[in-house]
Design a protein around this nucleic acid. Sequence first.
DNA 1: CCGCATCTTGCATACGTAGTCAAGGCGTGG
DNA 2: CCACGCCTTGACTACGTATGCAAGATGCGG
Lengths: 337, 337
Amino acid sequence: MPKGKVTSGDVAKLARVSQSAVSRAFNEGASVSDDMRARVQKAARKLGYRPNAIARAMISGQSRLIAVLVAYLDNQFYPIVLEQLSRALQDKGFHVLLFMTDPGRQDKVVQQMMEYQVEGIVMASATLSSTLARECAQTGIPVVLLNRYVPSSPASSVTSDNAAGGRLVAKLFTDNDHKRIAFIAGHEDSSTNTDRESGFHAGLEQAGQKLWSRAVGNYTFEGAAEAARLLLSKVEKPDAIFVANDHMAFAVMDVIRNELHLRIPEDVSIVGFDNVPESGWGAYQLTTVEQPYAPMVEATTKILVDQIEEKTVIRRSIVLPTSLVIRNSVKLRLESR
Amino acid sequence: MPKGKVTSGDVAKLARVSQSAVSRAFNEGASVSDDMRARVQKAARKLGYRPNAIARAMISGQSRLIAVLVAYLDNQFYPIVLEQLSRALQDKGFHVLLFMTDPGRQDKVVQQMMEYQVEGIVMASATLSSTLARECAQTGIPVVLLNRYVPSSPASSVTSDNAAGGRLVAKLFTDNDHKRIAFIAGHEDSSTNTDRESGFHAGLEQAGQKLWSRAVGNYTFEGAAEAARLLLSKVEKPDAIFVANDHMAFAVMDVIRNELHLRIPEDVSIVGFDNVPESGWGAYQLTTVEQPYAPMVEATTKILVDQIEEKTVIRRSIVLPTSLVIRNSVKLRLESR
DNA sequence: CCGCATCTTGCATACGTAGTCAAGGCGTGG
DNA sequence: CCACGCCTTGACTACGTATGCAAGATGCGG
């Protein structure tokens, strides 16, 4: 019989104790006798009482709310991260307030987050503007950039070692006799892209090679398809393409196979980045660089929770190791495996 | 210079007005003179004041929070819905509190939602238990089951016409001379599955056919792969399979092509359900039943917002039309298109 | 010039909970 | 038997905002 709202006062009245006693009965650290607690809980159960988190947040100053800011969920990387992050935060007693933001609405979003007194912010999208990141960091509450990095901002960041990943790909290509090596970039302003690209360049250089050609896909499916058409319309086509993330790589592979009727990896080798579930699907079998999902969300929650508990926000930058996941989209030197 | 917390009282002091005036200056409907509002806003800007949504929620009893309950985000259907839903609610001034729930933690989740005084609940996962749905509905706040339907519960629901979708698929198969028609089920307790399956059965019957064989994939990738192996290991294999959703259909297609070395659609026709983005990808080209995403989230938000504003929760069941999206995973009768 | 209606403003209170303070109960040691 | 300390409990206040109420200001018609 949950009628309207039942408050701690109602419970107190029924149990013939003070409201304070009810409060204490529901808070771990408080000093209450066992039978008092039992009495209160009995009354509370009878009335269907649930403490009001809003009121608690107001008095304690702890909303236990974490804002998660995302630009889009098309790329499976983000749903996966969001799911894990949400679970991890729930386990620690926090809750996720989800904000989707277009480039147009970014100013409003920060206001709204602050109005809800969130205790931390996670910005999880490679394409979120760095001015927004700075704005968040100015709020004085802990901010973690997940899969993004803004050098000049005081926000913490958690990324995988994108540059090392790029180097791994370069080595894979050069070790296996690829000669005309191309790159399809994501969003050129994003740290993920620049790090992957610069690592890739460094790796090529180390093997005495240079980038054959390059195009930009802006981390979108259509952009990547267009970029693939561009690169492969030339008379001398690349024999290997590193695509800045898996999501774009699928579009590239589709264009290569269905429009241009070339074979992967016989005619062109493809490598992506993220190791999104679809990479393992039979039709793609995409060789890719794995982002360590679990460690990344673990690091993110740890930074947040630590800084919230210690009430001290210091910048931390966590870089986690990447590794190659070899599947069948790269032509290997010794075909006799 | 955003130092700690700045309250309406601080603004009032600086502007030399009362706290009430500050409050009124920030609320649309209130009676304030223009210069008063200007004065307040000037002071507010100077201090970097943002109204405290927590305090507002407490006094007004309106948290403007909507709980969205999801079981998993693997199936792209849910990220898409979540993104659109979140955007739609933000536009209406609401915010999404995201809850991920395992079967084990379902009881806690309802408590937590209620503690945060959410004004509405969206349950978006075919596999969420119906007892949980009932529990939510008992809270007295509006509940919408999105892509799920529980007959005995007072919760509203928004679904596509799953039965009609199933019938469309049956007709497609029978019109195109398929004779050994199979079905791979999702989660057998879910309304999406039973509706799709019963519509499919009805359609077959109408054409004078019966289901050839059947297996269960439980809406998981691995389960679907296993189901495909089961169905296709028999000497007389089906020549058409309706898979209860796209996410499973991809697994089925992979098994058919890469393990069994059969061709789609020449040897087996496949149809899915959802029209998830991946269905259109070149490597799958999956013929499928489209769920009308935008109308579904629109209906969901409308039900919620209406019931929140009118303060009256009545059950509404919205069923939206589905349609076939024909691609290349079904063998058509006239090969000359 | 006065009376009345309308608009604007400040004061005071309420929302539901946590925590501070003081008072009371009880046990223990001298 | 008394003094002292710990544990438990209740009264009270604070958190930041919205709003009813009354008082003041303004305008208008008579």
